[in-house]
């Protein structure tokens, strides 16, 4: 059964993903799809932007695409 809030877009959740492996903005957006978080597209973009600015992750290019990552 689909739930409107089986995934939460939080700083902790983003941190966990970025510690595990480098991700593009699109990879992150896939992890926090609007149908799973219950947020609108605009809210998702705004919240994720705030979280990324706060976490200030490392960046590197892989296959010409910018990836964010964190070390523990």
């Amino acid at each position: 059964t689909p739930s409107s809030s089986d995934v939460q877009l939080t700083e902790e959740a983003v941190k966990r993903y970025l510690i595990r492996k480098p991700m593009t903005t699109k990879d992150l957006l896939k992890k926090f799809q609007t149908k799973r978080t219950g947020l609108s597209s605009e809210q998702t973009v705004n919240v994720l932007a705030q979280i990324l600015k706060k976490l200030n992750p490392e960046r590197k290019n892989i296959n010409d695409k910018m990836h964010f990552y964190l070390t523990e």
Binding site: T24, T25, K26, L28, L29, K30, S41, T44, V45, N46, L48, A49, L52, K53, N56, R59, M66
Partner: peptide, 20 residues
Amino acid sequence: SSSEADEMAAALEAELNDFI
């Protein structure tokens, strides 16, 4: 859809522009 995902990624990157 993937085009919506592309638009969201572009919007997010624009938000992060000064930061990146």
